[in-house]
Simulated assay, not measured.
Amino acid sequence: MSDALLTLKGVHTHIGPYHILQGVDLVVPRGGVAVLLGRNGAGKTTTLRTIMGLWQASQGAILFDNAEIQKETTPAIAQREIAFVPEDMGIFTDLTVHENMLLAARSGAIDKERLNWIFGLFPPLKTFWQSAAGNLSGGQKQMLAVARAIIEPRKLLLIDEPTKGLAPAIINAMIAALRELKEMQTTILLVEQNFSMARAVGDTVAVMDDGQIVYSGEMAELADDAELQEKLMGLSLEAHQ
């Protein structure tokens, strides 16, 4: 993780009259998991959406693999092998699990070997392969959302709060999946409120407040410093478990 795959330099984002991101500086090292923490409304989701081009940066630069992408369209950014798993998951509830996955395969066909690997990560998807996605549980829908993002190899995954409201067993499955993706040299930028989850997978961490990065460093350093946690968040991050 010696070099950066993704870098944000002085990024500002306006949504209507609201100035959400106010000079965000963020580095996501290649081949690791970077975690973005912060209170609700701090700008974490806006950061992911701005990287993905869903909202346009009004100022600053976003560099992916040393190329500026802040003016590119979302489809062009996706073509760079960047995938986004939104907080609302964005699955097509009227389509089957199979159909959801097929839509995510850019080549128009699903690689069987990769699909079997995904089934190993998320066994319920194989069980409910021909079932409507709307009939899945919340945890199974989250599995499907992540599986769609990785149905083809990606250089970067942007994942917004994948464990929100999930049972511990599902969270453990998600942790195992993210660790395996990291071993495969997939870089991940993860927004997460569950600090136990964040600490389990994160290599680096950045904390947002009021649209700015107020801290960045190694996850192990923050996890071991209760005083720093309280200073940054106003309460111990252990409360987010």
Results as ranks from 00 to 15, higher is better:
1 M>W: 02
1 M>R: 09
4 A>Y: 05
6 L>M: 05
6 L>H: 05
7 T>Y: 07
8 L>N: 07
10 G>V: 10
10 G>T: 08
13 T>R: 01
14 H>K: 11
16 G>K: 09
18 Y>F: 15
20 I>E: 12
22 Q>A: 11
22 Q>R: 14
23 G>E: 06
23 G>H: 05
24 V>W: 11
30 R>P: 08
30 R>Y: 09
31 G>F: 07
31 G>T: 10
32 G>T: 15
36 L>R: 06
36 L>A: 08
36 L>Y: 04
37 L>E: 00
43 G>T: 05
45 T>M: 10
45 T>W: 03
46 T>H: 05
46 T>L: 05
47 T>R: 07
48 L>Q: 00
49 R>K: 13
49 R>L: 14
50 T>G: 10
52 M>S: 13
52 M>I: 05
53 G>R: 06
54 L>S: 05
54 L>D: 03
56 Q>A: 15
56 Q>S: 08
57 A>I: 09
60 G>A: 01
62 I>L: 12
63 L>V: 04
66 N>D: 14
66 N>M: 10
66 N>T: 14
69 I>H: 00
70 Q>F: 14
72 E>S: 15
73 T>E: 13
74 T>H: 12
75 P>W: 10
75 P>N: 06
77 I>M: 09
78 A>C: 13
79 Q>D: 13
84 F>V: 06
84 F>A: 11
84 F>Y: 15
86 P>C: 13
87 E>Q: 15
87 E>D: 09
90 G>I: 00
91 I>H: 08
92 F>A: 10
93 T>A: 11
99 E>H: 02
100 N>Y: 01
102 L>R: 13
108 G>W: 04
112 K>S: 14
114 R>T: 03
115 L>Q: 11
116 N>K: 12
117 W>Q: 15
124 P>A: 11
127 T>V: 15
131 S>M: 07
138 G>T: 12
138 G>R: 01
143 M>K: 11
143 M>N: 00
144 L>N: 03
145 A>E: 01
147 A>F: 08
148 R>G: 09
149 A>K: 01
150 I>M: 05
151 I>W: 00
151 I>T: 03
155 K>G: 11
155 K>N: 12
156 L>W: 09
157 L>A: 07
157 L>F: 07
158 L>W: 05
163 T>A: 10
163 T>V: 00
166 L>K: 01
167 A>Q: 11
169 A>P: 00
170 I>Y: 06
176 A>C: 09
177 A>W: 04
177 A>Y: 07
184 M>W: 02
186 T>P: 06
186 T>E: 08
187 T>N: 01
189 L>W: 02
191 V>E: 02
192 E>S: 06
195 F>V: 10
197 M>V: 15
198 A>D: 01
204 T>G: 06
206 A>S: 15
208 M>N: 02
209 D>S: 12
210 D>A: 12
211 G>Y: 02
212 Q>M: 07
212 Q>T: 07
214 V>I: 15
219 M>N: 03
221 E>Q: 15
222 L>P: 03
229 Q>T: 04
233 M>Q: 11
234 G>T: 12
235 L>T: 14
237 L>K: 09
239 A>D: 14
240 H>K: 14
